[in-house]
């Protein structure tokens, strides 16, 4: 699973970066855990302050995009501050071994859990040895 830092929504390469109509926002890339089971890859991402409606998980051209808008629970200026919430953004490139039609996502307590099932071809198979 390779990580992409620059969005490439189309296959062609553009030498200079395209400019957006909106000014560039500040993003933080959320820390993730990724582990593998025989049937799937599981991705866990910390997205504190992101409500389910403000989370966008997209899969396009083998690129998985996680984008979330984090909000403080209180809009008032804090009197003491150790952190601030900015928007989350991170992209991953999926290999062909992932069955992209069956990806499922779940957001609970600020943690996104993504299940990325492997294709039938990529799953391990046990072959019983016939003893004649």
């Amino acid at each position: 699973m390779a990580e992409k830092t620059v969005a490439t929504t189309s296959g062609r390469q553009v030498a200079s970066e395209r400019e957006r109509t909106r000014t560039q926002e500040r993003y933080v890339s959320p820390p993730v855990d990724i582990y593998e089971t025989p049937n799937e890859l599981v991705l866990l991402a910390d997205l504190p302050g992101v409500a389910p409606d403000d989370l966008e998980v997209r899969l396009e051209d083998d690129i998985l995009t996680i984008r979330g808008q984090a909000k403080h629970l209180r809009t008032q200026e804090p009197v003491y501050q150790e952190y601030e919430l900015v928007n989350f953004f991170r992209q991953f490139e999926l290999s062909e071994q992932i069955d992209q039609g069956k990806v499922s996502a779940d957001l609970k307590h600020g943690v996104l859990t993504l299940h990325l099932p492997k294709t039938e071809k990529a799953k391990p198979r046990q072959i019983t040895v016939q003893v004649s």
């Binding site: 866990l44 910390d46 997205l47 504190p48 302050g49 403080h72 629970l73 209180r74 008032q76 200026e77 804090p78 009197v79 003491y80 501050q81 150790e82 952190y83 919430l85 307590h109 600020g110 943690v111």
Partner: peptide
């Protein structure tokens, strides 16, 4: 070093603490 990070808010009668703590077992 310190977990969770906290933000502190205050008004006349109340103090509010917001802690950044995703994925806790409630």
């Amino acid at each position: 070093r310190e977990y969770p990070l906290v933000n502190l808010y205050e008004d006349k009668d109340t103090v509010y603490v917001e802690a950044l703590a995703p994925g806790l077992d409630p």
